[in-house]
Design a protein around this nucleic acid. Structure first.
Lengths: 219, 219
DNA sequence: ACCTGTTTCAAACAGATGTTTCAGAGAAGT
DNA sequence: ACTTCTCTGAAACATCTGTTTGAAACAGGT
């Protein structure tokens, strides 16, 4: 938030912090303008109204969100690529603790309480990333039907995302020192091993073709 | 929201819906009072102000949240109990689509954006449930260290919770018809099998390369 | 110097929002 | 009937919120 930046980008910066912290409804344009060192009228002059500022702020996140690409070549095997995917995903998820990084917190809000702006987000950022994951899974289990692949992908994404969404409560449940010990390296290894073990060992029962009626599978 | 209910409980009911839908900041007391069929002054008369109404509403959720218990006896094996746990958890998670059921949506907001009210929630509802899961996992893999058990528990909880938190974006990514096909029965089976396969097959490497000590002894 | 289009600023505006006030209805006890 | 207490109702209040206005500052071109 340099002073010499044009007002427009200072506004987006300040708006990002404010929206990420308080959400759209609770954010105040006066506070945003104060943070940006601009006049109250600046928002309406540059963006029309509060809502359009919000949309442009969310959209701006995507532009900065695509920068990093998976640090793993396409030629590697599916296992390696899945590990890289999870590590990359987790790294961004856990970076949320950085108070400077309002982009992820804003993104999180968008994901849970979606507005019109999140359509763009899904199309440009999330769906491509999701499709890449689906490709890896398809390589690992080519015989799995589409629905099963979706569930597999969500199982992996869900494990990672939980450390973003569930962080406040998880920290209170197991204590903050216990939570701190779950660092990036350990979690990457854990979720990768957990998921790969499951993917490789799982039997995809079509539905009724199981002889044992459910719980008897204890061994 | 019966008309003959006392104003106080009608207010909490209406406030729950409103808060769950729009969040604390965006919720309007006039709207709440209108839904409750009460006067605008009712909120301040019965609860003091908007914030205390919010606290009492959240607290009220916990009272109603404990009602249901796991539908599975304690004498069953850990695998059966884990399946029951996941099924029970998922059932509540997926019930969020019920527009009548504002409690879970409100709870979700509390978990992500925790206020003072969520301390009570963690202590009375979440931690007991989490501990029950930890017991099951300890039975399945008694040799696992505490940190690993936490990660395992979060992997399971994360998979389930994703269908609550990530629902909006997941629906847009794979299409609503694809999402609909992931019903309670299928997801319970999937997450249970996925997690059990992982728990049984996973090798808990402390860090360095273990030759093959206790980990392989499951199968 | 003059015009022109752009940007900033202080002030004000209209509407919404949480809250308060106060008169009075209703019930219960004496 | 009288008091007392609890609760409701309509209106008003003070403040906050997003937005607009019109003048002024600024930069660039002619």
């Amino acid at each position: 938030m340099d002073v010499q930046d044009p007002t427009r980008v200072r506004l987006i910066q300040a708006a990002g912090e404010e929206f990420a912290e308080k959400g759209f409804a609770a954010a105040r344009v006066r506070e945003i303008c104060e943070r940006a060192g601009a006049n109250v009228a600046a928002v309406n002059y540059h963006f029309g109204d509060k809502e359009q500022l919000y949309v442009e702020t969310v959209v701006h996140v995507h532009g900065c969100g695509n920068e990093e690409e998976p640090p793993c070549g396409e030629d590697a095997g599916p296992e390696t690529r899945l590990r890289a995917f999870i590590g990359h995903f987790l790294a961004r998820v856990l970076a949320i603790q950085d108070p400077q990084d309002w982009r992820h917190r804003l993104m999180l809000r968008e994901l849970i309480l979606p507005t019109a702006a999140s359509d763009v987000l899904v199309r440009t950022v999330i769906r491509p990333k999701f499709n890449r994951l689906m490709e890896i899974l398809r390589e690992l289990r080519p015989e799995a039907e589409e629905r099963r692949l979706h569930a597999l992908a969500f199982s992996i994404v869900g494990q990672c995302m939980y450390y973003r969404m569930g962080r406040p409560v998880a920290e209170r449940v197991i204590g903050s020192e216990g939570f701190e010990s779950l660092d990036l390296e350990f979690l990457t290894e854990h979720i990768s091993s957990f998921s790969l073990a499951a993917i490789k060992a799982m039997e995809f029962a079509p539905a009724a073709a199981e002889p044992d009626p459910a719980a008897a599978g204890v061994k």
